[in-house]
Amino acid sequence: MPLDPAFITDWGSAGIRLATPLILATVGGVFAERSGVFNIGIEGMMLVGAFTAVATSYYLGASADPAVISLLAAIAAMLAGGGIAFIHAFLTVTRRVDQIITGAAINILALGLTNTLFRAIWGETGRERVAGFPEVRVPVLADIPVVGPILFQQSLIVFVAYFIPIIAAFVLFRTTWGLTIRAGGDFPLAVDTAGLSVTRVRYAAVLFGGAMAGLAGAALALGAVRYFTPGMTAGRGFIVLGAIVVGRWHPMIAAGACLLFGAADAFQLRAQALNLGIPYQFFIMLPYVLAVAAVAGAIGRASPPQQLGRPYRREAG
């Protein structure tokens, strides 16, 4: 039964849809970590992004074309994610506070803020469908059997996610900005002595990471369900951290890991119905187990940026 083409189309299509938020946030996370800032607050930033996107779409209501609304919602989500990321950047880069603690506090803050505002807007149980990203069907390509509908008949944001990792890899490896970011996490002193500002590089990378996490939240909320539920990110921000490790801090490989994780997630949803004998929970665990294996060095050399997690301070003496 699993080899039935209809099943594969359905599964693949869902897998890509589920992978989309992961890919967007992962690319942002790769930049932040490459610059030397660990961000376990991605979960919270995604949540804030999801909420902001839905709220924006909700308030714009029927005032404009759904495509325009979703675009504005996405921009609002990116701004919100970037705003939360600013707190992270300020505390970890300027104040040199521990990055883990800051991230953990941000997650709690995001949960508190979105829960409170959600109830304030939609009341106790209310969830209202809002305008989401429009569905796009690429002519001709979408007609290819099996693969066509999987890849080319998706929400607009999915197509964005196709290109983001490629652009990100280009920026990271083919521009001077990328060069500085990569140096910032590996050996910030070299950045400093080269006359570049470590602070500015890290702020930029963290803010970009936050904006991408916000966009990921928008993709999660407006891509399929089109409403907000409290805590709807449900640990995806942590899967992102795993994807970064498994993807060895490379946007394309990390995006590949996200696809794998999305596919596993889509499969577990279906596996419950299929009665395969393998408990579905093991598929959900996959990203996390792979991440542990990756840092433990079980799957190739995965050395993180060497100064990841450490604040930079120019030596005084």
Binding site: T176, D186, V191
Partner: peptide, 17 residues
């Protein structure tokens, strides 16, 4: 003052316009 994960050439051009 070399960035270990960058190539030799990338290290040379780091910070040079």
């Amino acid at each position: 003052m070399l960035v270990p994960n960058l190539t030799a050439l990338e290290n040379v051009v780091l910070g040079v316009s």
